[in-house]
Write a protein that binds this DNA or RNA. Structure first.
Lengths: 165, 165
DNA sequence: AGTCACTCGATGCATCTGCATCAATCTTGA
DNA sequence: TCAAGATTGATGCAGATGCATCGAGTGACT
């Protein structure tokens, strides 16, 4: 019944953990050295700037980013503190609110996007052929069926939220 | 000019982040539900129990686990607090010390190992053939090497040469 | 020997995270 | 209509993490 994991499966697990940890670290360090905030901020700004009117309910942001509710709440706190977003009243549901990206937020999003693209190319793109990257995608998808991203996406950088731990 | 990452590379990056986050979460939750501590403890106990005499210098542990120095120091604190390891004097180098796994540590390592193996099989092994797992290993390995620090980036600050650990 | 640069491990501090819980509001159903 | 329950977002608290720095010890060079 409970077959032991094969050596191949174990090896894949170990590499999955180690390689992502290392690659994430490299990318985050590159961005940090360039004076940018953590990737989670970028993800949030991306979701907001894609949303109609540049605004979202926190609960929507939470679903997009796959992070816990309290985490969303505090992320919004920080974005608001930095003037990258504002909280707006939600008239339809007085429990809730809207978070709207500010011009400063859009500007940071844009600049960060370029640096991010460079970092991804440096730490991922340059090490794999497109065909191998596609193969890697296929294999990874089988491990986590929750990633329905269209590879045919025309966007330059990550068009989907990048999970920052 | 900075070449943009291909869509394939971006997709691979996104999946690498999301899938590992998700799989790690699944495995950690399985272990937590069974009453075990976090995986970092297991990793440490594994390194210790593999080492000759069941003891290692913190600096060695740090290299094996790829975590920062202070993180190692505090992980050892917790292991010692739980009676899973002890700190021993190091006569060869009075700056340093040895960390030695205790019988309780070995026992936890063993029990946790079984649960861990089941979880890996469930969340990784069962989803890939051995051949595919091997292919995945090969692709991931190519991402793992050398994150060399090129200060060639046009970014503002290029201060410390922080090496990713 | 004396100096200087370096390694090893610990720790103070600020921040971040996970967990539990809260108040306010909405929805449901009798 | 009103009570019961669910949903939304915030927060107090404990523990974890990142960063910088410290003190002790080592090793090399003069």
């Amino acid at each position: 019944m409970k077959r032991k994991p094969s050596t191949e499966a174990s090896a894949a697990w170990i590499r999955l953990m180690r390689v992502q940890s290392r690659v994430l670290d490299c990318v985050e360090q590159d961005l940090k050295r360039a004076g940018f905030p953590v990737l989670a901020w970028f993800d949030a700004l991306m979701e907001l700037s894609r949303a109609p009117n540049g605004e979202l309910r926190p609960v929507e942001l939470e679903k997009q980013m796959l992070i816990p509710q309290y985490s969303t709440s505090r992320l919004i706190d920080r974005l608001v503190d930095e003037g990258l977003a504002i909280r707006r009243e939600c008239k339809m549901d007085k429990r809730g609110l809207f978070v709207e990206i500010t011009p400063a937020g859009r500007e940071l999003y844009k600049k960060m996007g370029s640096a991010y693209a460079v970092a991804i190319e440096k730490h991922v793109g340059s090490k794999l052929t497109d065909a191998d990257a596609a193969k890697l995608c296929g294999l990874l998808d089988r491990l986590g069926c929750a990633c329905h991203d269209t590879p045919a996406s025309p966007a330059p950088v990550a068009r989907d939220a990048v999970q920052a731990r």
